[in-house]
């Protein structure tokens, strides 16, 4: 890739690498900081589900740019890690939320809306409409 061998391209790549590195690390740090100071589990879930993915994604992009800078090669393997993290983050967040609802973790007092999953009294009846394809799904599954 001879067309890349220009001085200003090197400078631009270096600046972009440094910027993405610091931005990614900052976002990663902020989301972990949120996990410490937020008040209930449902709030703490938001940091890792989104911000960590973006932060690590930015660091991976910075690494790709760095290897373009020093070796003039694109390492698409790093792109695979980024895509993998993007696909898996919502799934693990959803599962964790399900676990928290299953264990009836208390939500913060300022939370508006009371889902029937968290109410104690009508757990047995919920959900009231059975699934058309699953016989007996009107009753809540007992572990």
């Amino acid at each position: 890739m001879a067309w890349l061998d220009k001085a200003w391209i090197d400078t631009a790549l270096e600046a972009m690498t440094a910027f993405f590195l610091v931005a990614g690390a900052l976002i990663t740090f902020i989301s972990s900081f949120g996990m410490v100071h937020l008040r209930d589990f449902y709030l703490r879930m938001h940091g890792p589900a989104k911000a960590t993915t973006l932060g690590v994604g930015l660091i991976l992009i910075a690494c790709m740019l760095y290897f373009v800078l020093i070796e003039r090669t694109f390492h698409i393997q790093l792109l695979l890690v980024t895509i993998f993290l993007l696909i898996t983050a919502p799934i693990s967040a959803h599962l964790l939320a399900k676990v928290a609802l299953h264990q009836k973790l208390p939500s913060d007092t300022t939370t508006t809306g009371a889902p029937s999953e968290l109410r104690e009294e009508d757990v047995a009846q919920e959900p009231d409409t059975p699934h058309p394809e699953v016989p007996g799904s009107g009753q809540r599954h007992s572990p």
Binding site: T53, V56, A100
Partner: peptide, 20 residues
């Protein structure tokens, strides 16, 4: 679940550390 999500975030952060 708090501990699980902490571990989950920790491994994503360790990926970042390895890349650095």
């Amino acid at each position: 679940p708090d501990r699980i999500i902490a571990l989950d975030t920790m491994y994503v952060n360790s990926i970042a550390l390895i890349i650095l």
